[in-house]
């Protein structure tokens, strides 16, 4: 019986028929998705923090309006994804709890600080750029609610990257100090952005199963290479450089070669020892705790209205 169901399931996936919440699915598939989607949601929510940091200090009303819209989008993306995860049987509170207790992770990139205004540009261009490359294939992922949420996310994400590049472009045409700020932000965000794609394929043993289930469609290294090829060209428009002495076009491979990624740093940040891990988690927990009375009051008010 079990094998039969599994065969039917895999057949559907192979034929590109979306799996919906009430369809039978292997437990591992369900758990993998719950984890991936909820952690993706956590990343959107925690991702608001480094950028929210600059809303009050945006250099113009135009930039401030853009940044608010972007941060508001991230909140929306988090909510789309939490809803998608809930269709798999986990509650919102459980997911929050996993985030707040440190059981669930979020993208390590958000454990780096935003030191200057140029960081907002670098995040849009590099961090959102890397996110988009990862997210586009997810629009075709095999689980229906996740795929539909990602379509919405991708539609909205494109302005995030463009506003970031435009911001850096403006700085790159400014004073010496502004140019230096721009280069400095690129220097600090480049390597962490490359780490966003995850470890090398040979160190990512579960990729095969996720490929088979069509949760994932490209390997970490494929996507990373695509990103590098793209950014290595775009950086020329900014008249800036990427902080990698080994970055060089390889005519034979038709790709850019690049230097060694510091995986030690990656594991340190994943393990909780990044520059801002504690600060980010504390901010989330505080927001949740401070909002408790609002949640309770709204519930009480709803009940009171029902009575009257």
């Amino acid at each position: 019986m079990e094998t039969n169901l599994e065969t039917v399931f895999q057949d559907k996936v192979d034929q590109e028929i979306k799996i919906e919440p009430k369809d039978w699915m292997p437990d591992k598939y369900r758990q993998t998705l719950i984890r991936q989607i909820s952690q993706h949601a956590h990343s959107e929510i925690v991702g608001m923090l480094p950028e929210g940091n600059w809303i009050t200090r945006a250099p113009s009303l135009r930039r401030k309006a853009i940044l608010i819209a972007k941060v508001q989008d991230e909140a929306g993306h988090g909510l789309y994804l939490y809803s998608a995860a809930e269709t798999l049987g986990i509650s919102r509170d459980e997911m929050y709890d996993q985030l707040h207790t440190g059981k669930a992770k979020y993208s390590s990139i958000f454990n780096y600080p935003t030191l200057t205004w140029a960081d907002i540009g670098a995040i849009g261009w590099l961090v959102d750029g890397a996110a988009i490359l990862n997210q586009i294939p997810l629009c075709r992922t095999s689980f229906g609610p996740y795929a539909r949420a990602m379509v919405r996310v991708c539609k909205e994400e494109s302005f995030h990257q463009r506003q970031g590049f435009e911001l850096l472009l403006t700085l790159s045409q400014g004073t010496e100090a502004q140019k230096d700020m721009c280069q400095d932000a690129i220097n600090r965000w480049w390597w962490p952005s490359l780490m966003m794609f995850g470890p090398n394929d040979d160190a990512s043993p579960h990729t095969a199963q996720s490929m088979k289930w069509k949760i994932k469609r490209f390997s970490n290294d494929e996507l990373r290479q695509k990103f590098i090829d793209m950014i290595a060209e775009q950086v020329k428009v900014l008249n800036m450089v990427l902080p990698d002495a080994d970055l060089k076009w390889n005519e034979e491979r038709k790709h850019y070669d690049f230097g060694k990624i510091n995986w030690e740093e990656f594991w340190q940040v994943v393990g909780g020892n990044g520059p801002c891990n504690k600060q980010r988690l504390d901010a989330r927990k505080k927001a949740w705790a401070d909002g408790a009375w609002v949640r309770e009051a709204a519930t009480a008010y709803a009940e009171k209205k029902l009575m009257s």
């Binding site: 952690q39 992770k105 979020y106 997210q135 997810l138 794609f197 579960h206 970490n220």
Partner: peptide, 30 residues
């Protein structure tokens, strides 16, 4: 187990959807 949107977790492996043992008021959801 790392790919985009999945960053591993620090305790027991896969998300355990049966573990509702938290102090954050599970059950009081809107």
């Amino acid at each position: 187990k790392f790919y985009y949107g999945d960053y591993g977790e620090s305790k027991n492996g896969a998300a355990d959807i049966s573990s509702a043992n938290s102090s954050s008021g599970v059950g009081s959801e809107w």
